[in-house]
Structures are given as C-alpha cells and as structure tokens.
C-alpha cells in the first residue's frame, strides 16, 4: 500500500452517508482524503486549494452535473485525474464527463476492493476502463460516424480496426490480459489501444469546444 499512502484524494458526492463511507474505505486502504465536497462550487474551490491527485466524482450534484464538475475541477487543478463513480444508468452524463476529461468510470455498486484498485490505477494515470465505459465510448464513436460532419469542422475521430476490436472485447468484460491472449499481443499494448480511444475522444471534444468558442466570439 505504499503507492496508496502518497496518494491524495478528493471525494465529491452530495450524499453525506455515501461520502463518509467511501472516505472511510479509502483512508482504511491508506489513501489521504484531502477534501470532500457536496457541490460543483465546493469541488472547484477545494480542488484548487488541495490539488488532489485523484478526484472521485458523483454525477448528481445540487448545482450541476458531473460533466460540468469534471471540466471545472480540471481547470482548477489540471494535474488531477477524475474518476467517475456513478449509478449505472446516467449514461449520457457519464459520457459527457469522460469527454470533458474524466479518465475512468466505476459503478457505485462496485465493491470496496474494486474501488481501491480503480483509485490506484487512476492515480497512476491509467484509464479505468470498465466494460460499461467501453460500451459508452464504442457507442459514441458509432454515433459520430453516422452523423454528418458540419462544413469546415474537423472530421469526427474514428477507431482503427484493432482499436474497435479491443474496445468491443473490453465492453464484453474481458480483462486486458485475456484480450492480450486472444489477440496474441501484450496486455500493455491492449491498454495503449484502449487509452488511445479515450484520448482521441477527449481531444476531439476539446477541438469542438474551442471551435464553438471561437465561432461564438466571431458571431
């Protein structure tokens, strides 16, 4: 648990019971919970003050959703890695939060052990790619592929055949190691493919946002 000891975490959730329970689990595993927050505003100011390495983010907040909160927290603390902790069917919100820069997604019904493993991975800068997140990202790429690109806009990012294959296997619940065995590559290679799909999506989202901002200023 030496990795955990040096890891600072902020827990954002508007349910006090849940917030305390998660904080206790994290402290027990050796993480340092530097802040808790129950709103987007509180999360933003506390992220700036405490610069946590990992932010555990709920999707339902009284003054906004997790996507907004993710964007604002990352603005206030650019070094933080945001892990979404959500009930399972807030799917569109989760996708928006991931596009806004969150690097992982875990359902609230996950066990304490799964949570701790996910926070460790997030602190190390790895994407916590649950099958659920893979399904969302897969769906988003397919949605973008069917939508016509507006004139003058960057073409929507697309997946390479290998990335598509890997993403489908992740969405079906196979681990990186299992996928590596199936495709006869190392699990590192699998993880790189997976991360690439997320980075492309976030990059395209940033380009999109910038373009939107420029257009609105000019207009």
């Amino acid at each position: 648990m030496s990795a955990a000891e040096s890891t600072t975490v902020m827990v954002v959730d508007d349910h006090p019971m849940w917030r305390d329970g998660v904080s206790r689990d994290l402290e027990a595993a050796g993480f340092t919970v530097v802040a808790t927050a129950d709103s987007v505003a509180a999360a933003t100011t506390r992220a700036k003050a405490t610069t946590p390495q990992v932010v555990l983010m709920d999707m339902h907040l009284p003054d906004g959703n997790g996507a907004e909160a993710t964007a604002r927290v990352l603005e206030a603390a650019p070094g933080a890695n945001v892990l979404i902790l959500s009930a399972s069917s807030e799917r569109d919100d989760v996708l928006q939060a991931v596009k806004a820069g969150a690097c992982g997604y875990l359902v609230k019904s996950a066990s304490a052990a799964e949570l701790i493993e996910a926070v460790n991975a997030t602190a190390a800068g790895q994407a916590v790619f649950t099958p659920g997140l893979a399904g969302l990202v897969l769906g988003e790429y397919r949605r973008m592929a069917t939508e016509p690109t507006p004139a003058g806009a960057e073409p929507a990012p697309t997946l390479t055949p290998r990335e598509l294959e890997v993403l489908r296997l992740v969405a079906k619940g196979l681990s990186a190691k299992q996928i590596g065995r199936r495709l006869d590559v190392s699990h590192r290679t699998v993880e790189n493919h997976v991360q690439a799909t997320l980075r492309k999506l976030q990059l395209s989202n940033r380009i999109e946002l910038t373009r939107y901002a420029i257009e609105n200023e000019l207009g």
Partner: peptide
Amino acid sequence: PAGVNFSGPAG
C-alpha cells in the same frame, strides 16, 4: 440483475 455488468451506448 444487479450482479451482471451491462455496457451500451449513451443514447
């Protein structure tokens, strides 16, 4: 059921 992992598109 709750124990089964579900993945799908956002829409």
